[in-house]
Design a protein around this nucleic acid. Structure first.
Lengths: 335, 335
DNA sequence: CGCCGACTTGAAATCGATTACATCAATATC
DNA sequence: GATATTGATGTAATCGATTTCAAGTCGGCG
């Protein structure tokens, strides 16, 4: 339906080659011809088809991003970091939502690759490692946030989950807690698994017995946190503190605790992971592990831009994370 | 870099036409040929170029969405609604972030259109009406959330801003407030303007004088809300209640009030607009106007799908919104 | 007057996939 | 045994833009 280059050529009485030259500012077009063509371009409100252009030039100027959930504040911060950096090199960022389904994620990624994106970025990928490797084999530069991957075509950025989770658990132990529960994400997603490992390690280090009942599966969502917390509450031997694999679930714990008449941190202490924007806004404000996600996006984008230039190789970047202390853990000196 | 159909054809010892037939499941290919081709397809991990396909078929199967801010919870709910509905008709949704810049929004939209999307959806558009009309003239079906527009190619969905804002203001008046401030969004964005109109109308109706100082410009962000509220606090005659054009700004008011040692709703009552997820999570929980945004996304997507089939015309949809009463307005019977 | 070079412009190939049409072989039919 | 029919496959045009190469026009200069 929209006008194409031939329409413009016909109306301006020139060939499509000339129109193309005018549009791309190539030299060697007479001024009056240029003016005549531009007049028609404006009249038709013509814009050259990015599809045809991409096909011809073999370069789209697009970086595709797959996110598991487009309404996740946490992931969107990473996207913002990517966006700002990629925009500097004139790449456009387009985002697809995988709705927390590994299948959709695979489809979106394949579609991006077949659509000729110049780079593909996966945020918190859910698909299996082998499926990921298959995508990486296709040759387009790939970036991953939130999972470490050893592949000659993948730049990955992840935080030091294990060590940081260890410290967060340690923090609760130092508050005198002996019965500390952990709410996991989706088993198999490395991020959550590593955090659980850090939690277990801290318990072991401090000689606290590991209680299988105190590890409940959430699914990184508020609802998952609520369900997992309900299970914990029903236990004969209730924990006095909960550490969750992400903030969404911690917020679930907070709201469910309020609903059950438990006060945080007096009856139950809560520590989250991610430090999303909500963490400082909820009541009580949530103590959480801060992931430098804007920075992560920046580092990832930077490396990808260089890879597209051919001026850098894939990297494996590991970032430090730190505990932001607020009210939910029971610290007196909280902000 | 990725394999193309000719590579497959060569390796399988057939023509590209046969490969295409195999890939699209067309009849009239011998079983052994089909198997041979499929073996090569799997071996090369081949996926047909969506670019070339789109160019040839004149249909991309994509709906493009432009959002002003990809980390806005409110807008993303609308996107979710769109996504679910469009997925049923096998359209893929791709999202571009305009980073609250009208210029980027225009660029993204033009790029989407030149990229051959089958439909373009603008969420809370910031660009001028004339620029919007220019896009609409290009022929691709357009959907808009959050602004009413009369154009033969635009389906728009918006809530009844004026009436609802009137009711929200009325609610504060019924609580005994006489000095009610309003924090606007970005002047020129119809949504915010209409809400302001409703606010003024309520004041007039109840015989309360309109105080220009009590209307402060925010920009739909938390920071904007904070700045506007600071200005209000510095006034010789301080308001006792604040109504904001969206929740983000209301949350700014809430945090700033806490920082200044003012308690909500005792010292200052607050009512927001949008009922984002944060509204029920902040302390005190925010009374806010609920926009049925999933439903909005659903209605918008539904009409667009029909328009793409050619089985419907553009519509102007107006939805009802209702006030969700929580704690920040000072109601005793709050949830 | 004729030739050369500079400057404009157009014709045609190209990118990767789809598809109408042509071709060819093998079988069926009289 | 010659021809019609069916089935399987290849050839080439097409989508819209870019770009190389060729061709055309014009002026200048001998």
């Amino acid at each position: 339906m929209p006008a194409n280059i031939k329409d413009v050529a016909r109306l301006a009485g020139v060939s499509s080659a000339t129109v193309s030259r005018v549009l791309n500012g190539s030299a060697g077009v007479r001024t009056d011809t240029r003016d005549r063509v531009m007049a028609v371009v404006r009249q038709l409100n013509f814009a050259p088809s990015a599809v045809a252009k991409g096909l011809r030039e073999g370069r789209s100027g697009i970086a595709g991003v797959c996110v598991p959930d487009i309404s996740s504040l946490f992931f969107m911060d990473v996207v913002k970091g990517l966006e700002n950096t990629l925009a500097l090199s004139d790449y456009r960022l387009v985002v697809c939502d995988s709705q927390n389904q590994a299948k959709k994620e695979r489809e979106n990624c394949r579609w991006f690759l077949s659509g000729g994106v110049d780079a593909l970025i996966l945020i918190g990928p859910m698909m299996e490692q082998s499926a990921l490797a298959e995508l990486a084999d296709m040759g387009t530069p790939i970036g991953i946030f939130g999972r470490r991957m050893d592949h000659p075509n993948v730049t990955s950025v992840a935080v030091e989950n294990r060590v940081t989770a260890y410290r967060a658990t340690e923090h609760l132990i130092n508050h005198g807690h002996r019965k500390i529960a952990f709410i996991t994400g989706i088993p198999g997603v490395t991020d959550g698994d590593e955090r659980e490992a850090g939690y277990r390690e801290a318990l072991a280090q401090y000689g606290l017995p590991f209680q299988p009942d105190w590890v409940q599966v959430g699914n990184f969502t508020e609802e998952g946190g609520i369900r997992a917390f309900d299970t914990l509450l029903a236990l004969p031997d209730r924990p006095t503190a909960v550490f969750t694999a992400n903030d969404e679930m911690a917020i679930g714990v907070l709201t469910e605790a309020r609903r059950c008449g438990l006060s945080v941190p007096e009856d139950i202490a809560v520590v989250g992971f991610d430090n999303i924007r909500l963490a400082r806004l909820v009541a009580p404000a949530l103590t959480s592990v801060n992931q430098p996600r804007m920075d992560a996006g920046f580092r990832l984008a930077q490396n990808l831009v260089q890879r597209m230039n051919g001026s850098a190789d894939p990297e494996r970047i590991v970032l430090e994370a730190d505990l932001v202390i607020r009210q939910s853990c029971g610290c007196k000196w909280s902000t």
